[in-house]
């Protein structure tokens, strides 16, 4: 049955309408969860607000569990789902660079859009920076083209890498996340006592 578009079950013209609708839902959820505030997001690194971790991990869990059952019911074909290919070295470098960006800006691309939507200048500046960053990367691409394609492992899943089933991966993820939720809840309670609470915008 699913996924619908790769199987041609939805006519081509609807693609962009669907994209728009899914985007609206995505933007709405991000904003409503408080991701339009960089201080809210950065809180995850200082222990005063773990909203990022909560939303993020809950979403990953729901998606993983959902895909698992969709697959079991035969509603979705795993093989047609796009699994992000793995290039360990460039990906680690990219993630570290993004980590730097994350801690200095407190935004990631998706959240900066929602920050723009509610009128935050830092959101606009971040997006402009994003544009510039991708431009710099593209111009300098020949310099590290080899590195960019280094260590291609193909569309490997976590389970395939570890040699276990992805169902087990899901189960481990659930346990780890639940423990993380509990621990961060404790941390947040302690940290909030020591720092003066501030007003979020």
């Amino acid at each position: 049955m699913g996924p619908l578009i790769p199987q041609g079950l939805i006519a081509g013209g609807w693609d962009f309408v669907i994209a728009l609708l899914l985007g609206i839902a995505f933007g709405f959820i991000l904003e409503a969860s408080g991701f339009s505030s960089s201080r809210n997001i950065a809180g995850v690194f200082y222990g005063y607000n773990f909203v990022v971790l909560r939303v993020f991990f809950t979403a990953v869990l729901v998606c993983m569990v959902g895909l698992m059952y969709f697959h079991y019911m035969g509603w979705i074909d795993y093989n047609l789902i796009y699994v992000l290919p793995t290039f360990p070295q460039p990906m680690i470098l990219g993630a570290v660079i993004m980590g730097f960006g994350f801690i200095s800006a407190g935004f990631c691309p998706g959240t900066s859009y929602t920050a723009m939507a509610i009128g935050k200048i830092d959101g606009f500046v971040f997006t402009a920076g994003l544009f510039l960053g991708i431009f710099i990367f593209s111009e300098a691409f020949p310099l590290f083209e080899d590195f960019y394609y280094k260590g291609n492992m193909g569309n490997i899943t976590i389970g395939e890498f570890l040699g276990i089933s992805n169902q087990l991966v899901t189960f481990i993820f659930v346990i780890v996340a639940l423990v993380a939720f509990y621990v961060t809840w404790l941390i947040e309670k302690r940290v909030r006592k020591t720092i003066t609470p501030f007003k979020f915008e």
Partner: peptide, 21 residues
């Protein structure tokens, strides 16, 4: 939390379903 554990763990208790593809 318990619901989640049941959902994730319950999968292993389900009977095999083959030929889905």
């Amino acid at each position: 939390a318990i619901l989640f554990i049941i959902l994730a763990g319950g999968y292993f208790l389900l009977p095999e379903r083959e030929n889905i593809k």
